[in-house]
Simulated assay, not measured.
Amino acid sequence: MSFNLANITAMDLDTGEFDPYYGPYVQIVSGLSLQQALLDSLSEISSLADKVAAQSVLHHRCQAGKWSVAEIWQHLVDTEIIFQYRALRIARGDTTNLAGFDQDEFVQQSRASGRNLEELRQLMLAVRNSSLLLFQMFNDEELKKRGVASGSEISVRALGFLICGHQKHHFKIIRERYC
């Protein structure tokens, strides 16, 4: 059974449903329903991949010490999978304080420099489709459940919006600095 995510917007979130650090990510998608944010991001993935391909910037770094476009894409995939996992555990009533992760260490270990654009595109599309199905599986009560991740309270529905806002944030960086 699929639940309707069209009636849930980021503006419905209480400030206590996510750490203020994530505020900019929520703000980016504030005018969208969770369903629309997840669906819109699917077309954004392919659109930006086409632009990255046309510009041949997949392994480019905008400056020394910054992540390449491939590393940013792999970071998005890794983070989304972690946020999915957190959402599932919280929705199922797990009260464990879910550990954070070192994004720089993840990128360093990701082997993103050996991946091609089509591989990254397909990986990101598969993970995003998985997120869409996951969040459709949750009912209203589960979407509102809160748990603790990285030492801060967060709700299941906030994690859905963070996934989308996080992608939009990084895609904006790619468009501004790389393409």
Rank of each mutant, 00 (worst) to 15 (best):
L5R: 07
S68E: 08
L120E: 02
V127N: 03
V107K: 01
A112M: 08
L117P: 05
S155Q: 07
L38C: 09
R89L: 13
V52Y: 00
L34C: 08
K172A: 13
R111L: 13
A37L: 04
V156P: 07
Y85G: 09
G114C: 00
H59G: 12
H60A: 08
S113Q: 13
R175Y: 03
E80Q: 11
A87E: 11
T95V: 11
Y21S: 01
R61G: 08
I72L: 01
Q36Y: 04
I173P: 10
Q84P: 02
S56I: 01
S131I: 13
H59S: 03
H169P: 04
L98M: 02
T15E: 14
L13P: 00
R175Q: 14
A87K: 08
D78Q: 03
H59M: 07
E105Y: 12
G16P: 02
A149F: 09
L98W: 06
Q136N: 15
R177C: 00
T96I: 11
H170Y: 08
D78F: 05
F83I: 14
I28N: 10
N129R: 14
H59N: 15
L48Q: 02
L132T: 06
F161R: 08
I154L: 12
Y21A: 11
M124E: 11
G165Y: 11
G93S: 12
S150Y: 00
E44R: 05
N139W: 09
A126E: 12
Y22W: 13
I8K: 10
A49D: 01
E71P: 00
N97L: 02
Q103V: 11
I90A: 05
W73S: 02
L143C: 09
F138G: 07
L117C: 01
E141A: 15
R111N: 14
G165W: 06
I154Q: 01
L143N: 01
I28F: 12
S41P: 05
S113L: 15
K66M: 06
M124W: 10
Q55P: 00
P24Q: 09
I72P: 06
V57C: 12
A149G: 00
V148R: 06
K144R: 15
Y21I: 14
D14Y: 10
K144N: 14
F3Y: 15
E176W: 03
Q108I: 07
I173S: 04
S130W: 08
